[in-house]
Amino acid sequence: MSTVELIATILGGLTVGSALMVVLSTHPVRSVLFLILTFFMISANYIMLNAQFIAIVNIIVYAGAIMVLFLFVLMLLNLSKDTEPKTSVLMKISAAIAGGVLATVLVAALKDAAFETIENADNTIGLVEQLGMLLFDKYVLPFEVSSILFISAMVGAVLLSKKEKQIID
């Protein structure tokens, strides 16, 4: 096992561990914090995969914005361990079995998938220049459409959280 493989394995283990803690923490705020940790781990994995730009964007977008939002909402609603709804034991057991079986089956299905080695690989694909060219050339329409999605999401969020008009009674 080479050093890189060792690092990758340890990183993978940490990623899985922190992801598992997201689910298992009984405290919602701790769940959020573990999720942030998971995102950092995933960013590290991105760097391992030569995707520096995506890695930093992952941190800015997920850890820096989305998770702040989650934490913000949790704090705003003042949710803590006491208010955390309990799940029935039966449900927990069946869920654990289902999740475990799903993971096993998926891994079993993907384990033997064969991939041929691709020779003409380019290790500069993760750079901003390359991604920028791709984004504004081949994917310019989805890019523009995603901006519309953002606008509508923003308008939707503002509309929903306006206090004056109660939508649901």
Partner: peptide
């Protein structure tokens, strides 16, 4: 090569100290 993004990313995380501490 993305130093400025790195700074932005780290700054965006800076708020967690305050948030967690306050909470």
């Amino acid at each position: 090569n993305i130093g400025i993004l790195f700074i932005m990313g780290i700054t965006s995380i800076g708020v967690y100290g305050i948030m967690i501490g306050g909470w």
